[in-house]
Simulated assay, not measured.
Amino acid sequence: MSASMRQKTAYSAVVAGYDQPTTRIHGRVKEILIAFAVMTVPMIVFSALLLGLIFHYRVVQNAFASENLAFSSGQDDSDVFFVKISATTLITIASWSSTVAPILVGFAVTLTSYPIASGMLSASVKQEPAQLPTPYQLSLLLEMLSSGSPSACGVG
């Protein structure tokens, strides 16, 4: 086993003579941080862009000079923002975010794989076979994690 492979992952081992085996998986902090950043940054950028456009192009309503000139009750709502912006601009930005969202699923799979691996490692160290997945469940889990993670694409 190469030195780089030993640096990336440390597995638990129960050795005779040791009372407390290691049950932590080390060395994947960089991959977790990258997956978290790739998942959150694009959605934060799109949300900030939408909010920025809405507050920049917001139309502030002035008080009415006369009650006869006031809007009907449906148009004078304090919970509504009136904006002077093209609907196609808002739809375009929403379309970009809906295009990026499915790409981020692989990074979500990466983030969920660590608690799953930790639970399986803990159950195996404690010798609780009822807490471990069946062979069929394990094959489904491995298929999902291997095909959906960024590591499958060479990222990380």
Rank of each mutant, 00 (worst) to 15 (best):
M1A: 11
S2F: 07
S4N: 04
M5R: 12
M5C: 09
Q7H: 08
A10C: 03
A10K: 13
A13V: 12
A13D: 09
V15T: 12
V15H: 03
V15R: 08
Y18F: 13
D19E: 11
T22Q: 14
I25T: 07
I25H: 02
H26T: 13
R28Q: 13
R28N: 10
K30I: 12
L33A: 14
I34M: 10
A35F: 01
T40A: 07
V41N: 03
I44F: 13
L53M: 14
H56N: 13
V60L: 09
N62G: 13
N62H: 12
A63V: 04
F64M: 07
A65F: 05
A65W: 00
S66E: 11
E67F: 09
L69I: 03
A70S: 11
S72M: 08
S72D: 15
S73H: 01
S73N: 05
D77R: 15
S78H: 10
F81Y: 15
F81W: 14
L90T: 08
I93K: 03
I93S: 01
I93M: 03
S95H: 00
W96G: 11
S98F: 13
T99Y: 14
T99C: 07
T99E: 04
A101H: 09
L104I: 05
A108N: 06
T110A: 11
I116L: 14
I116A: 15
G119K: 14
S122H: 12
K126H: 08
Q127V: 11
E128P: 00
L132V: 07
L140E: 04
M144C: 04
L145F: 11
S149N: 10
S149V: 02
P150G: 04
G154T: 09
V155H: 02
G156Y: 05
